[in-house]
Design a protein around this nucleic acid. Structure first.
Lengths: 187, 187
DNA sequence: CATCACATGTAAAAGGTTACATGATTCT
DNA sequence: AGAATCATGTAACCTTTTACATGTGATG
């Protein structure tokens, strides 16, 4: 139930409306914790019901500004310092890799080379974001910088790994059903 | 809808029952694509309905052995070579990091130090798995090795990043101090 | 006065988790 | 005989995605 905590965290930094929060989910949090408008408005209502948030101002177009309550803040603090919180971690890239045996070595190598390119692009994008520094005068600034560095290191790691992985694949072709051959060079 | 493809991939390597497949989800795929028994049996039924899998043998306790069909195999090949497939990528660790500002610097540093320890433990676990080689005579062997290497590099990266991040805290309370000593390798 | 940005909501469907339920076979 | 393992399924609930639906206020 981390969307809840993402909302508490954002509102704790600064009171905001659902619309404001959506803008943050579309930008800063897009690659960390994606959420849809539908989800955000629903969860804000539930958080208000639970008295972890409160509506503290109304604006022009039915705008509601949410502020964190004391109960909300203590729940946030409890969650943020709990290192054991760690949901399951799905990786679609690795799922592909596991089953690369169904295609021949050439296609597998090509797939990995493409992943190396994509990681390079991500790295480039983050480097430009880092230079622009638009992120660091925002509310999430000082800690957002740490998250950005994580992204940079991850992209570099994936680029290097994908290049290495491509190089590991021998030219020994795999049969079309992959069940009998053990594949390329045994270690 | 990747559970579908995970099942197609596993059955393509070797015909299996739901029970057999669950054993793989609990071990090899646990950190790549978690799935519950409930999900697996349900999806196997749907895949059989869609004629991407077929029941090719019945065993002792109502056991049904599934085999991939031609249609199933071509769907799997299409998916596996499609580098554009990439679902949203949630990272609860980074979500914590974004909101570390709600606690004081000492607690934030402690949190990151704990994450460095946890990453070290994961690395150790994977190294032991690598030595044991139990994985490489299995169906997923040759490509599973590439996935394992990804895990090793990821764990090492997260350990280094968390140590670096912990060291960054406290040196500049509000403004950022831009330069990283141990940034990712450039090119 | 038209268009864009602001602003909030609901409904249906798909995907995922937890808990319950049942029974057969093998091993000690 | 009792326990562990093999084996499949269903029900309730929660989370996430996609699509629909509506209206206000500011700007050119």
């Amino acid at each position: 139930m981390s969307l809840r905590h993402a909302l508490l965290g954002l509102v704790a930094y600064h009171p905001a409306s659902g619309y404001d929060l959506m803008a943050i989910f579309r930008t800063s949090l897009a690659h960390v914790w994606p959420a849809t408008q539908s989800q955000v408005y629903g969860e804000l209502a539930r958080l208000t019901d639970a008295e972890l948030l409160a509506v503290t101002a109304q604006g022009p177009r039915g705008r509601k500004e949410f502020t964190i309550t004391e109960a909300g803040r203590s729940e946030l603090v409890r969650w943020v310092t709990d290192a054991s919180v760690n949901g399951p971690h799905r990786n679609e890239l690795l799922l592909h890799v596991f089953f690369l045996g169904v295609v021949d070595a050439g296609e597998a190598r090509q797939y990995l080379a493409r992943q190396a390119e994509l990681a390079t692009d991500r790295l480039e994008l983050l480097r430009r974001l880092e230079s622009s520094r638009s992120w660091d005068n925002e509310a999430l600034g000082s800690y957002g910088r740490l998250a950005l560095e994580h992204g940079l290191r991850l992209a570099a790691m994936e680029r290097d790994w994908a290049e290495w992985a491509a190089s590991q694949i021998g030219s020994a072709p795999t049969s079309s059903n992959g069940s009998s051959t053990t594949g390329p060079s045994g270690r």
